[in-house]
């Protein structure tokens, strides 16, 4: 039996036969309605592009000034990592680690991992330890919380505007975009096609 010809529902495990989808179409479970797989068109390309953009944005967000505060002549320029360092200095190493992981490290692992996986696949190569990397990406994905971090920063900015002049830097915009790009990359990632390639080339 050609295993590739069938697909199991990720929710209720009902086996379906694969069939060609129209462009942009979605195959849904006949029993529970969960999405089985999407039209594979451009999925890899889109995800790779988003992941690459994300990596670039993340680098920008970490290298350039994030926010500048001017409180009565006291001038303070911050980069993305400054807040985490401050948390650590103020005796909250656990919180700092959590923010560092969720805000920067996990999104970076996810995006970089995607690039690592998808770039060779696009050229029909099989990356080294593909399965491990993909599992890591899957595990780390939910922990990437750039949008939460961004929301926290936005709230802080809104509260501070009454007290201080705040100048947002390039990194801030890069980070804001990043949270969308991460979401887009996650959305466009067709895990099914990865699994397919994993099985096909094994």
């Amino acid at each position: 039996m050609d295993l590739d010809a069938y697909v199991a529902c990720p929710e209720c495990d009902l086996l379906h036969r694969r069939q060609t989808l129209p462009s942009g179409g979605v195959a849904k479970c006949t029993r529970c309605g969960a999405a089985l797989y999407r039209s594979p068109r451009n999925s890899l390309d889109r995800t790779l592009a988003m992941a690459a953009t994300g990596v670039i944005l993340l680098i920008i967000a970490n290298c350039y000034p994030f926010l500048s505060l001017n409180v009565e002549g006291q001038f303070r320029e911050t980069i993305l990592i400054t807040g985490i360092v401050e948390l650590y200095r103020q005796g909250m190493p656990l919180v700092a680690t959590l923010v560092l992981l969720c805000g920067i490290v996990f999104p970076f692992i996810e995006l970089a991992g995607l690039v690592y996986l998808l770039l060779p696949l696009k050229f029909d190569h099989r990356p080294w330890r593909m399965l491990t990397v993909f599992l890591v990406i899957r595990a780390v994905g939910p922990w990437g919380m750039t949008e939460v971090y961004l929301l926290g920063i936005l709230i802080a900015i809104i509260k501070l505007t009454s007290m201080a002049d705040i100048i947002t830097g390039a990194a801030f915009y890069a980070f804001a975009l990043l949270s969308f790009v991460v979401a887009a990359a996650a959305a466009s990632l067709n895990a099914d096609s990865i699994w397919q390639r994993l099985t096909v080339r094994q």
Binding site: N42, D45, R46, A49, M50, A52, T53, I56, L57, I60, L177, V181
Partner: peptide
């Protein structure tokens, strides 16, 4: 594809 414009612009 056109999608590659996004990372190119970002880069």
């Amino acid at each position: 594809g056109l999608i590659w414009l996004i990372p190119i612009v970002a880069a």
